[in-house]
Design a protein around this nucleic acid. Structure first.
Length: 275
DNA sequence: CCCCAGGTCGTCA
DNA sequence: TGACGACATGGG
């Protein structure tokens, strides 16, 4: 077992608030999470994380990277409150929430599926994709399936994907796979692009609009200066600021939330969904 | 049978 | 550009 000391970390909220889809809450209040190359089970015991895994190689760094444990969120939260004091409420509601550092291909496909969909349906489809195409891992006397690598998806057909309840988004995913294989899209260069260029780059993909592209950059590339505006954030902005419309929200966020827009909108999403 | 879910696309003015 | 309906699937 690996133990990691943490403070200011809300494990439950971070896992369950919609950033990731592939986790199971166990009876002992631990979480089993499927990462890109291993399965981990994590339990929070006061200020300590207790972790068991199918693979202990470099595990501490993997966990710290995935949960963004080395970033100083308290300072960021203070800064945000300085920028706009009325943020104190929702930040208090989301104290200890970390932005997960997820995996590009899985994140892109998951959030293409997220369009006009519910978290339950998204989770279901992502799990079905993994079970059908991913690598099997035995852990704790159970079988788990990693999300597939690109080479495991090369020959996937639209009909197969529609069987996995992906619906009208199936052709978007086929196109994504084809573009990656044809080297028309390179997920590795995104770190070298500015956030605006990265958004444009991702939005060349069918099925990836401003919201999905923002989620990809926030959750898979650690860009906090994005605007993942969904129905919940729209409701929040209208109720609390009387601001309507995508452009107006982006404009307001840009002016008031600056480089932490993505994080703040995540706080809003979280507070709204937890009501 | 209606509306909605972590939206985006194609079409038409 | 901007508005608007369509889109698979499941749940309330």
């Amino acid at each position: 077992m690996l133990k990691i000391k943490t403070d200011n970390f809300d494990l439950d909220n971070t896992i369950t608030c919609g950033q990731i889809f592939r986790y199971v809450k166990e009876n002992n209040n631990s979480y089993t999470i499927i990462l890109n190359d291993r399965v981990v089970n994590i339990k929070k015991d006061n200020n300590e994380l207790l972790i068991i895994s199918s693979d202990y190689n470099n595990l501490e760094n993997v966990i710290k990277d995935f949960f963004d444990l080395d970033r100083d969120y308290l300072s960021i939260q203070k800064e945000i409150i300085n920028i706009s004091g009325d943020m104190e409420n929702i930040i208090n509601n989301s104290k200890g929430l970390k932005v997960i550092h997820s995996f590009p291909l899985e994140t892109i496909i998951s959030f293409i599926i997220s369009a006009n969909n519910s978290v339950n349906n998204i989770t279901n489809s992502v799990n079905l994709i993994s079970e059908k195409y991913g690598t099997k891992i035995n852990f704790n006397n159970k079988e788990y399936y990693l999300f597939p690598e690109i080479n495991q998806l090369t020959n996937v057909t639209e009909i197969e994907l529609r069987d996995l309840k992906i619906g009208f988004r199936a052709p978007y995913i086929i196109e994504l796979i084809e573009k990656i294989n044809a080297l028309k899209i390179n997920l590795n260069i995104i770190d070298d692009l500015s956030t605006l260029d990265a958004l444009d780059y991702l939005m060349t993909l069918n099925g990836v609009g401003p919201k999905v592209a923002s989620c990809i950059l926030l959750f898979a590339y650690k860009r906090f200066d994005v605007f993942p505006i969904d129905t919940w954030v729209k409701k929040y902005m209208e109720e609390n600021y009387n601001i309507k419309g995508l452009k107006n929200i982006i404009e307001y966020s840009k002016n008031n939330f600056k480089e932490y827009s993505g994080l703040i909108l995540q706080y809003m999403f979280n507070s709204k969904r937890n009501l």
